[in-house]
């Protein structure tokens, strides 16, 4: 178990190092998220709708779209120079490869989310001082599950024609339950509601994570093995 984790961290470290050296994907994902926020600002009528009423949806649609851009990258870099074959030939269990890719994707999506959040506060003038720990928590909880599914689909999509289109078509339905839950919890957090009103949604998000991380771990071998 510890060995698997060590190997997974090594694979994740490789991905993160490669990304930090080029920074192109990370940078474009962050810029993309910022642009979505800007576009959203013009999609609402400021005199009719208070920013805070729209804030949870804006935040989560931005997170979802930016994650999609980020996840597209996960296996495209492995496609170059047959890197994936090298990774799969290494004497490493498939579960370690999956966990490594999942951790790297989580780091990547997490970074994009961490940059988007302050921009969101800036553009939409939302007071996060009290709700911040809760929002960070629910973001982590909601992100893990769909990034796990996204890692699987990203590994599949690179082997298809129209990879950039295939990933959103497959993944967006899977983003719906975490997105609904996260929007509901975020809205309650911003309104300062008690924890008991969010518990149902938090349970749903946790259950989603458990089910889809486990399932993704199980089916990963079927995706990469000939």
């Amino acid at each position: 178990m510890l060995e698997t984790l060590r190997l997974a961290l090594a694979i994740a470290g490789k991905d993160i190092r490669a990304e930090l050296r080029s920074r192109t994907a990370l940078l474009s994902a962050v810029v993309f998220a910022a642009l979505v926020l800007v576009v959203f600002n013009f999609a609402r009528d400021p005199t009719a709708l208070a920013a805070v009423d729209l804030a949870p949806s804006v935040l989560w649609v931005t997170f979802a779209l930016a994650s999609m851009v980020a996840l597209n990258r996960a296996f495209t870099i492995e496609g170059e120079n047959g890197a994936l074959d090298g990774l799969l030939l290494a004497p490493v269990p498939r579960s370690a490869v999956f966990l490594g890719k999942l951790l790297a994707n989580l780091a990547f999506v997490g970074t994009v989310e961490a940059v988007t959040l302050p921009l969101f506060v800036l553009f939409f003038n939302v007071d996060l001082s009290r709700a911040l720990p809760g929002i960070v928590g629910v973001t982590a909880l909601a992100t893990v599950g769909f990034v796990a599914v996204g890692t699987i689909f990203s590994a599949m999509a690179v082997r298809t024609r129209f990879a950039e289109l295939m990933l959103p078509v497959l993944l967006l339905p899977f983003m719906v339950p975490p997105l609904i839950g996260a929007v509901q919890v975020t809205a309650r957090l911003l309104a300062g509601r008690p924890l008991s009103e969010m518990l149902g949604w938090l349970r749903l998000l946790a259950l989603y994570d458990v089910v889809f991380v486990t399932l993704s771990l199980m089916v990963f071998a079927a995706v990469v093995d000939e």
């Binding site: 699987i152 599949m156 082997r159 298809t160 497959l170 899977f174 889809f212 399932l215 089916v219 079927a222």
Partner: peptide
């Protein structure tokens, strides 16, 4: 294999 994975998920 791919479609089986999508089917289960």
């Amino acid at each position: 294999r791919f479609s089986a994975v999508v089917g289960i998920l």
